[in-house]
Design a protein around this nucleic acid. Structure first.
Lengths: 329, 329
DNA sequence: TTGTACGCGTTATCAC
DNA sequence: GTGATAACGCGTACAA
């Protein structure tokens, strides 16, 4: 019953050809007689043959693996951040029906040794970089050529990102249309290009609308979102709207707003960025700039899957404002 | 510079022994002269030799891979559920310093074909099952022996879970101590053993305290949490506390409670289960039964890593009540 | 205890 | 166009 899994040799024998020919058929190489190709393909499907990826990896020297390289404080914070769940899901989507595996690498912040360990692994199809600084990207590119970055980009590395500026602009305009005129912003870490883009979008929109910018710095975390909100309320007790650089930050802001006795959205409207599960789960539900993280990750992955990848590709995906109660009329 | 990666043969040559001996040293096999072992180990470290996992996999017929098998509606819902982020982080923790990879398999609900596809992959060290029904587990066990289940268990499969009953009991007692006497519960799906355990814990605690049970059914989702809360408020407008089978459900309940004009915790106290990022991010922050998901996943993974795994191991991890504002004094 | 020789399943380089 | 044959790097009976 438990028949040994079929091999290339089995197929060759059944088709009456050599293993070389079968290999050529499998890899869609030219230089095979049509009738031979036909017969081999039939045998393959009747036998249910599937090439052994391990043997192939040994022979070619490169495995069918895509690596996700994430820089985070530690594994815990990687697991707790909803963003990475979406990234993983997106990569898996790009890998569907592909027999390519996903390998996850969490590089702990400020641990160059770990980064080096990552590089010593056997080479794969390439790496998806998330939250990787240009310096580390430079380091990595010494051992691996095929890389693509989500959001953060280093020169020479193709990057896929969301239209951060546009997304924030639409959010600010939305708040303006609601009658809000004292619209504050809590930024993300300025080492992060996405955060920079969102900040720029805020200042741009505010200027265009003839309003006065009110800002506080943060680092994408809930904690700094809360602190920043306290500072903002102290210095600008009359603000009537807050835009946060990400949903996590927005949840912190929401908690402080409620504590301070403000009603959301009646007194202060609140808008986040990401449209993660946190936005939909908040009370009241958060209006948020939707970012197609899954799509972005899937596209980045598919680029890696290509034999010859265009090193200069840079795609920006459109965002869309998901309007919920936290900024209702 | 770019010297070819070191191989077993290189080590053997440098140490003046045969490849077999080097292989034995690497795999810690007995029957090697101490001095030979010593010398080989030195050469290995000076050369910086690392065994090629691909070649090893081909030779042994089994790769250094742990599979995560998750049954979910689709990839999107996998990525959106904070629980899986923690599971992945836990597995990665269990795999630290191990060179073992993680392969993620999202089996779409009601797609037996997909489940079969999972089974056709090359065998690895074993599989961590999450949310897998006993029937599917039975199916899978036909092609793979080494499996361990998180939460849900099928006969013959070792399972790691949290002390669901105890966790809920402590939550209910906490609410009772706060003076709450009309404590409702929103259950999870009864196909899920964890949900069953939490329901049992609720009924048990309620009975011990001499209270009357007030319950509604749910499926761990935010949506059903909201619906169930509406039903509960309609039939029991005087309830003063709700326990939810998971945090997602609790966020739905919180939204409806706020909509209905109830104050949390003043009018109705709320407690969730999981202590996920959703609990800490909610407004007000949710009291929740902390479940050491990462630890559980790491332990399950380490069991898989053992050469001979005890098939009858069943561990239940203690929970701890994380008290926050939603059930404050 | 140590070494020889072969197998794992595929790709790649040659001749033919 | 096709088919031997040698890698790829390692595990492992078996013999020495």
């Amino acid at each position: 019953m438990e028949r040994r899994t079929q091999t290339l040799a089995d197929v060759a024998r059944a088709a009456g050809v050599s293993r070389s020919s079968v290999s050529r058929v499998i890899n869609r190489e030219p230089g095979v007689a049509p009738e031979v190709r036909q017969r081999v393909e039939e045998v393959i499907s009747t036998l249910g043959y599937r090439p052994n990826p391990v043997a192939r990896a040994l022979a070619t020297g490169s495995a069918d693996v895509v690596e996700l390289v994430v820089v985070e404080r530690d594994r815990r914070s990687f697991g707790a951040n909803p963003h990475y769940g979406r990234v993983v899901a997106g990569i898996l989507e790009g890998l569907a029906d592909t027999d390519v595996q996903l390998r996850i690498n969490v590089v702990e912040k400020g641990a160059p040794a770990a980064a080096l360990a990552v590089a010593t692994r056997s080479p794969g199809l390439g790496s998806v970089l998330v939250n990787v600084s240009p310096a580390l990207a430079e380091d990595l590119s010494r051992d691996r050529e095929r890389m693509v970055s989500m959001g953060r980009s280093a020169p020479g590395i193709p990057s896929f990102t969301a239209e951060n500026e546009n997304g924030v602009r639409s959010a600010i305009r939305h708040l303006y249309a609601l009658g809000r005129r004292r619209i504050a912003a809590i930024h993300g870490p300025m080492k992060n290009p996405c955060a920079v883009g969102r900040r720029d979008g805020y200042f741009d929109a505010i200027a265009q609308l003839g309003l006065t910018p009110i800002t506080a710095d943060g680092d994408f975390s809930r904690e700094t979102g809360a602190e920043a909100t306290r500072r903002l309320l102290a210095t600008h007790p009359d603000l009537d709207a807050i835009f946060c650089a990400c949903d996590q930050t927005a949840t912190g802001a929401l908690q402080v707003l409620m504590e301070s006795g403000r009603r959301v959205p009646d007194d202060v409207a609140l808008v986040g960025f990401d449209d993660s599960v946190l936005a939909a789960a908040a009370s009241p539900p958060l209006t948020s700039v939707h970012q197609p993280v899954e799509q972005i990750a899937a596209s980045a992955t598919r680029l890696l899957l290509q034999r010859r990848m265009d090193t200069w590709q840079r795609d920006a995906f459109p965002t869309a404002l998901a309007i919920r109660k936290s900024s209702a009329g």
